[in-house]
Computed example of a mutant assay.
Amino acid sequence: MSEPTLGTVMAAVDGLVAAAGDPAVLPGAVEDVRRLFSGSKACLARFGTDLDVGDAIATDVDPGLQRRISGDLKPDFQVLSAAIERVPFGLVYQLHSVAGREWLMNTRAFHEWFAPQDMYDGIACRLVGDPQSYWFFDVQRGKSQPRFDTAERDMLRLLSPVLTRTMEVRRHLGRVELDRDMARDTLDMLADGVVIVDRDLTIIHANDAAERLITAVRSALLTRRGRLAARQGDDQRALKAIVAETLLAHDSPLRRHSSSFVARAGGREQPALSICALPFAGLRYPGRVVIAIKPLSGRPDMTDHLARLFGLTPAEARLAGLLAAGTTVADAASTLAVRLSTVRTHLARLFQKTGTRQQSQLVALLNSVSPPFPAA
């Protein structure tokens, strides 16, 4: 084995630091450490529950062998995992010392997994973990190579804090990415449009409903070079004004401001849009505004939603939908092709099930419970 130089050590450290922020370079960083130790194989891997192929970043990966860890060789690896779990974090160990050389050499895992990959002697270190799983780094040497000595174990001990920090940052960024994806998926479930813009109206994110509204032919809103814009000149000025006022109000909470207006479409085929601006919550993202967009026509069918919400029969739900849309009792009887007395009976049941006493109260309640999510 050639002696490591300061340059090769620093290259390995630099690679690990870069990998903390960019998972795409993590395999290359693991390869750099393998070369540093003149190993036959190296891996950064997780042991624990719900393992998959992505839980091992290894050099010269064999996906078939990786799958066997949680497949037919799982019993042997469960014993190995339990033995390694007893090793304190940060302590460098040799696998045969932890698991027992005699036991290890007689396992299927050794003969069908370690040996085919020329993994006969290894040093490793547990890095980070939780009650369900832990991450560790392991570097191996082949059958014809010299065994690891004390100096090499000491070198891994010195590298272990860098490896640990790399995985701590990766785990944190993984949670951030998960939170971001969940937030975006949640916004996409909403029936109304939501757009996040900066002070120049550059679109940072638009949910699915907003994308549909903005891209509709002759819509009241559109995009110009990645920025949110209104079709009409007066509306464009109003849009800029409410964004500017919202940002000022965020900095000065006592400042009164107008945060909404109605944007007009370019033709009768598209509805006008109610536009409302809100400051983006939190101090980590200054200069960002949330724009809520709601069409002012094209009322969705509320029948199924009202039936589920108040436990209405189909006939009662149809009447409730008509009343919410502004239909009179007499016109509802004509539309539903039933007697006026039948409609009044349904109306009495609606009062009972919704806890209202007057038709005006009922209509106000029905119009306040429009579903936040589009119909499936």
Rank of each mutant, 00 (worst) to 15 (best):
W113S: 09
A206Y: 01
I242A: 01
E152M: 14
T327E: 00
A337N: 09
T345W: 02
K294D: 11
D14G: 11
V289K: 04
G233I: 11
A82D: 12
D50N: 10
L319F: 06
R165I: 06
R225I: 14
L158D: 10
A82I: 00
G48K: 09
V9N: 05
H205N: 07
T313A: 08
L312Q: 10
D208S: 15
L95S: 02
A376N: 11
S360Q: 07
L247E: 00
M182S: 05
V162N: 04
A206M: 08
Q132P: 00
S81Y: 02
A317D: 13
N207Y: 03
S2C: 03
T49A: 14
G71S: 12
L366W: 08
A220C: 09
V13W: 05
C125S: 14
A209Y: 03
R224C: 07
R318P: 01
G266P: 00
S133Y: 04
L283H: 00
E211V: 08
L312P: 03
L190Q: 08
H205W: 00
F373A: 12
F47I: 03
R68A: 09
T342V: 09
F137I: 06
Q358E: 08
S297Y: 03
L6H: 10
F261T: 13
A315C: 12
Q94H: 04
G311D: 10
D185A: 13
A124F: 05
R34K: 15
L158A: 13
Q132M: 13
M155Q: 13
S219F: 10
A45Q: 07
F37C: 08
W135P: 04
R349Q: 15
D62T: 15
A183N: 11
A229N: 10
T107A: 06
G48H: 09
R147Q: 13
L283K: 00
R308S: 06
P372T: 12
V289G: 01
V289T: 12
A244Y: 03
Q94E: 13
V169C: 10
L213Y: 05
V197G: 02
L248Q: 12
F148V: 14
D251L: 12
S370P: 04
D121L: 02
D200Y: 11
R225S: 15
S259C: 14
G266M: 11
R126W: 13
R68W: 05
V329W: 00
